[in-house]
């Protein structure tokens, strides 16, 4: 009796564990890992925005930063930016120097003598509109959210201004608006996109270094940009699912 019971249990155990193992195996077949740059568009149709910046085209004029401040009522003080431009300079003795005077709006002056420069380039920064955005994850009230278009937006009439998202953003793209007491950030000019207009920074860029578009559409300009160029996202190790793709970005940039 005892032995028989043991046999049944063992068979039971084998069947059950087999089912579980098989289930896991088939589940893994059903949803295999997919996604470019650890970003995977959610189910649905309609636009799902991504952004591309071509470092080689950026002339560091900071027209983007200026246009953004003008379009979106960003405070003019040099502590609040929705987008800004950095100049990286890597010297011959391998020091990294980064400057961004007033987010680039005041113009760049290269202080390193040309003979000491190993490499130098501009990096425009803005919200990455991450797919797994750490900032919307931590919002305690649901004032920060990802829109159906894949944009990380802030409901300023609901935000409590705790600043948790500011801490959670690895890219420093959020700030507390000094007058409103709520968080402010890039919306990819959502108010323009919905009216069929280009975002202010894209409009202002004289060299078309910045592009954006629908990632779901594999023939869109942004999809081609990602496909044809050697693109990287910032801080990929954090697995934020960033959707701001830089062409020919240097590894030193963080």
């Amino acid at each position: 009796m005892g032995i028989k019971k043991e046999n049944v249990t063992r068979r039971d155990f084998l069947v059950k564990s087999g089912t579980i193992a098989g289930g896991v195996f088939f589940a893994s077949l059903l949803s295999p890992f997919k996604g470019v740059y650890a970003t995977k568009e959610p189910e649905g149709d309609g636009v799902w925005y991504g952004i591309g910046i071509d470092i080689e085209k950026c002339i560091g004029c900071a027209s983007c930063a200026r246009a953004c401040k003008n379009e979106n009522d960003v405070p003019k003080e040099p502590f609040f930016f929705r987008n800004w431009v950095e100049q990286y300079t890597i010297t011959n003795n391998e020091e990294i120097k980064v400057i961004s005077p007033n987010g680039g709006i005041d113009g760049f002056t290269q202080t390193v003598p040309e003979k000491d420069i190993y490499k130098t380039f501009f990096v425009p920064k803005m919200c990455n509109h991450c797919e797994k955005s750490p900032c919307t994850q931590v919002c305690p009230v649901g004032a920060s959210f990802e829109s159906p278009e894949g944009l990380a937006l802030v409901d300023q009439n609901y935000c409590i201004g705790c600043g948790y998202c500011v801490q959670a953003c690895p890219y420093g793209c959020r700030y507390i608006h000094p007058d409103k007491g709520v968080v402010d950030k890039c919306t990819l000019c959502y108010h323009r996109l919905t009216k069929g207009l280009d975002p202010a920074c894209m409009l202002a860029c004289p060299t078309r270094a910045r592009i954006y578009g629908n990632l779901r559409d594999k023939d869109s300009e942004i999809s081609k940009f990602i496909r044809d160029n050697n693109c990287v996202v910032l801080k990929p190790q954090l697995n934020t699912g960033a959707k701001l793709y830089y062409n020919s970005l240097n590894q030193e940039v963080r």
Partner: peptide, 21 residues
């Protein structure tokens, strides 16, 4: 410390379950 202290009740009304806070 909140930027909008009078909105703190929202944390109990519509708590965002992925947020530690």
């Amino acid at each position: 410390h909140l930027g909008q202290p009078f909105r703190f009740y929202e944390m109990l009304i519509t708590p965002h379950l992925t947020s530690a806070m």
